[in-house]
Computed example of a mutant assay.
Amino acid sequence: MKILQLLGHELRLLLVATQFLTRLPVPVLSHYQPEWLQQSARYFPLVGLVVGGLTAGVFALLFWLFNPWVAAIGSTAFSIRLTGAFHEDGLADTCDGLGGGFTRERSLEIMKDSRLGTYGTLGLLLALALKIALLASLPLLWALIALLLAHGFSRFLSIILLNFMVYGGEVEHAKAKPLAQQLGGQQATFALFTLLPVLLLGFWLLQWPVYFWLLPFGLMLLACYYMARLLHQKLGGFTGDGLGATQQLTELAFYTGAAALWL
């Protein structure tokens, strides 16, 4: 009975993570508890794999019907629709806040403003343009694997910030409050293990030496480290928007490394 209760609770957490990160329909959760969101963070990478898998399917279909550019644009648009531009919104707000604010208080004030500024517009447009160009430059199989791994591991690196950083926003900010607690090491380890099957699948399909993977994953780690330092210096810790920006930047870093291997 306890095992069934445990499995039921884990399923609820997976549904919470899916509901939080995507627009996918999920059953209505009765007796919802705010702490479930913080606990569900361990399933964020798994939800990322779902998003990456569905996006890869759209990419493959459009690649077959049209060409790589249509596939890259269409699949990117699909992923934005699938997630409700959740992470892209975080990237734009972070660019506006950190670019236009000279103090922590002013940066947080700008990031809470729903209006899009110059820094946010330029940052978002440049990120999307680069993402599309990089995906269009990849061979089909590598593009599909890259979409899976980038979506999954970028969300893993985002939640790693929950484990090593304190919350830097305003605690009363309702959207970020449930995630304002640090993520435990066990949750981070659990999240990593959800990604291993797809990583091993990529190794098997591409048959590359292990050192080939150092470039895309190394760039992801550098991007994550950059965001951690930036958020620490500017805000004193992570915010919900900062996590979204970290996801976008590390995803883009993986595509950059993947494309560089084909030059």
Rank of each mutant, 00 (worst) to 15 (best):
M1Y: 09
Q5L: 02
L6D: 10
R12Y: 03
L21F: 02
P25T: 00
P25M: 00
V26P: 00
H31E: 02
P34C: 15
Q38H: 15
Q39C: 00
Q39T: 02
S40L: 15
S40M: 11
A41Q: 15
Y43T: 06
P45N: 13
P45R: 14
G48H: 07
V51T: 10
G57P: 04
V58I: 08
F59N: 02
P68E: 05
V70P: 01
A71D: 06
A72F: 04
G74P: 03
T76Q: 07
L82Q: 04
A85G: 08
A85S: 10
F86G: 04
G97Y: 01
G97K: 08
L98M: 11
T103S: 07
E105T: 14
S107C: 12
I110H: 08
T121Y: 09
A129V: 15
K131R: 14
I132M: 14
L134Y: 00
P139M: 13
P139S: 12
L147N: 02
L148Y: 06
A150F: 01
R155C: 00
L157T: 07
L157M: 13
G169D: 08
H173L: 03
A176G: 14
P178A: 02
L179A: 13
G184T: 13
F190H: 08
F190E: 05
A191Q: 06
L195K: 06
L196F: 08
L200E: 05
L200R: 06
L201R: 06
P216S: 11
P216T: 14
F217M: 03
M220D: 02
A223C: 02
A223Q: 01
Q233E: 13
G240D: 00
G242W: 13
L243C: 10
G244R: 14
T250P: 03
Y255L: 02
A258R: 00
A259R: 08
A259E: 06
A259I: 03
L261S: 14
W262F: 13
